[in-house]
Design a protein around this nucleic acid. Structure first.
Lengths: 254, 254
DNA sequence: ATCTATTTGTACGTATGTATT
DNA sequence: AAATACATACGTACAAATAGA
């Protein structure tokens, strides 16, 4: 597991702060520093790199923006290696898609195949605590919403169900991608056409799916879990389409 | 399409540079600035925010690190809104997974379902130019490798095939995720057990798959494309497993 | 509760670098 | 080639935060 940095490229002139930031990154990897380990203080870095204070500070801000370090003032303070948080990663990736005009369909094309896969892989592997959390979450929307505001709240809550599952994924990649997509969906503003009334039947189906899914997960039945999630995704997708939902570009905050 | 920033939170004390960076981000969104548009110069930002030059500069480095702006010197220079590049997004996301110990199996769990989906969605939609590029790429590894070095080169080249497809995806999310995974695979170092000789048969299968896939794509046959890609992924996965490949944590460079 | 030492955070003046016209 | 309009870099001084005595 010898980590290293891929340095190569046409390597167009990089500004000093960026160079320093890269050098520090490399140094951290070389030293096998782990999350929580302390980096040299400002003054030491100034000497080590023969750079001015401002330049060093700009470099640190770069690393901080990438979520790789955290900095504290005071005695015993300084900069510390920090594991990039999932929230930070989602925010940074969100910046990329800000410019990309994703459609709801784009998201569902992935959810439709990935969420059933996740559900199957979690069957029989969740603690009773998590299963309870899922059930409590479902309880939050056990009754159909009466107004459009409540409906939106329920919609977000029902998405939370999927976030909980994503957080339990053994496959970090699968978990992250699903979490990210659910995040995008939670963030979007819903416009419903006036002539498209809330579809209680579809809503009820979704609710029942989630309950059945928890049972399959508890029973350790991966095939059932996959099948139910598959149906659930189809239902959710139908609901979204009916409601004429529009994506809205925004930056994800941390 | 009214973009906006979700500002809320416990909002723990943020450093000034971070606050300024966020404020500038919001301002850019409010002003509906597009990629390429110019931001106010340093001196103007200093006045606008009543901050020192250093603070403003640190803020700009943050935005730059996130890939949201580019800065040029000289007359007519300054900072400009910049669409986050795919390469930058991959690098930033890579930092997140640096701490996560992904396995090859994790990646293939996603490739196995996503790549066939991509292949199907591209059937009949690729220009002759792209189809040619794919064929030329395949030609780079039409003969079995003779030594382990050449084999690695061919391995990377055959992954390049998938990158080309990912870049053509109509679904930006699907394209990005696949591109990112292929990037991870290209970056990893391959250790082969001595008693595991190169499997020419499997390699040949992979090669044939790719040729058949190009034909299906040209013919506009989505079902065939999906089926072939599905087989191809199984083959690739078998090859990787046989070769006892190990992931190595590293930072992706830009 | 206060002081003190440590370490980052902010300010500002000046000089240098760089690309356009 | 020179002037111009920008960012880039440096150094110092001082302010703020925090932990510990």
């Amino acid at each position: 597991m010898l980590p290293a940095t891929t340095r190569s490229k046409a390597e167009a002139k990089l500004s000093r702060p960026v160079q320093v930031a890269e050098a520090i990154k490399d140094w951290v990897v070389e030293q096998r520093l782990q999350a929580g380990d302390r980096l040299p203080g400002e003054t030491e870095l100034i000497e080590r790199f023969s750079m001015s204070k401002g330049t060093i500070r700009e470099a640190m801000r770069i690393l901080e923006a990438q979520g790789l370090i955290k900095t504290r003032t005071g005695p015993g303070g300084g900069s510390f290696v920090h594991e990039v948080s999932r929230q930070r990663a989602k925010a940074l990736l969100g910046n990329y898609f800000y410019f990309k005009d994703l459609t709801i369909g784009d998201i569902y094309q992935l959810r439709l195949t990935l969420e059933p896969e996740l559900a199957a892989s979690l069957a029989g592997k969740l603690s009773e605590e998590i299963l309870r959390a899922l059930e409590e979450n479902i309880a939050e929307y056990s009754e159909p919403a009466t107004d459009i505001d409540e409906e939106r709240t329920q919609h977000v809550a029902s998405l939370r169900f999927h976030t909980i599952l994503a957080e339990q994924a053994e496959n970090p990649l699968l978990g992250f991608v699903i979490d990210f997509m659910v995040n995008l969906l939670s963030d979007l503003t819903v416009y419903r056409r006036l002539y498209s009334p809330p579809n209680v039947e579809l809503w009820q189906q979704g609710h029942d799916h989630q309950q059945a899914l928890v049972k399959a997960l508890r029973d350790g039945d991966p095939d059932a879990a996959r099948a139910i999630m598959s149906d659930h995704m189809e239902t959710a997708w139908k609901l979204m389409r009916r409601q004429e939902v529009k994506m809205q570009n925004r930056f994800i905050s941390e």
